Amino acid sequence: MKYLISIILIASITSIIYGFTIQETDVVFAHKCIGFGTVGIFLIAMPLFLITVSKGKNMKDYMLNEENIRRMQGKDSRSKKKE
């Protein structure tokens, strides 16, 4: 999966760069290349990357709720028992 994301990212960046280089000769095709490159990065590569990175992690640990705020401030009941 890591290699697929890398290939999509490289292809998208290449498409964007190619679109900017041919912008003076063929404007319509250049805009299409830039658009497909942007779609590749933000709608394909980024969600795939986020899915692979967040696999197996508990999203409740990253939410800002009362318990996590107390834990960040050091006022958790477990930290009181240690003192």
Score class of each variant (00 low, 15 high):
3 Y>R: 01
3 Y>T: 11
3 Y>F: 05
4 L>N: 00
4 L>Y: 01
5 I>M: 05
8 I>M: 01
8 I>E: 05
9 L>Q: 01
10 I>D: 00
11 A>G: 08
12 S>H: 01
12 S>R: 00
13 I>L: 11
14 T>Y: 06
15 S>R: 00
15 S>Q: 03
16 I>Y: 03
16 I>W: 06
16 I>L: 03
17 I>W: 10
17 I>D: 07
18 Y>H: 02
18 Y>E: 02
19 G>P: 02
21 T>Y: 03
21 T>V: 15
22 I>G: 05
23 Q>K: 11
23 Q>R: 07
23 Q>V: 05
24 E>I: 04
24 E>Q: 13
24 E>F: 04
26 D>Q: 14
26 D>G: 01
27 V>H: 14
27 V>C: 05
28 V>W: 00
29 F>T: 07
29 F>A: 10
30 A>Q: 04
31 H>F: 08
31 H>R: 09
32 K>E: 11
36 F>V: 10
37 G>I: 05
38 T>K: 11
39 V>E: 06
41 I>M: 09
42 F>Y: 12
43 L>E: 11
43 L>N: 04
44 I>P: 01
45 A>P: 09
45 A>N: 08
46 M>F: 13
47 P>D: 05
47 P>I: 11
47 P>V: 12
48 L>Q: 02
48 L>M: 13
48 L>D: 02
49 F>Q: 02
49 F>G: 15
51 I>C: 04
51 I>M: 14
52 T>W: 11
52 T>V: 11
52 T>L: 07
52 T>S: 15
52 T>Y: 10
53 V>W: 12
54 S>V: 14
54 S>R: 07
54 S>C: 09
54 S>G: 05
55 K>F: 07
57 K>E: 08
57 K>M: 15
58 N>D: 10
58 N>P: 03
58 N>Q: 07
60 K>G: 13
60 K>H: 09
61 D>L: 09
61 D>W: 11
61 D>G: 04
61 D>S: 11
62 Y>A: 07
63 M>I: 13
63 M>Y: 06
65 N>T: 13
65 N>D: 15
65 N>L: 12
67 E>K: 03
68 N>M: 08
68 N>C: 04
69 I>V: 11
69 I>F: 07
71 R>K: 14
71 R>S: 10
72 M>L: 15
72 M>V: 12
72 M>W: 13
74 G>V: 01
75 K>L: 15
75 K>Q: 08
76 D>W: 04
77 S>R: 08
77 S>I: 11
78 R>D: 12
80 K>T: 12
81 K>I: 15
82 K>L: 14
83 E>W: 04
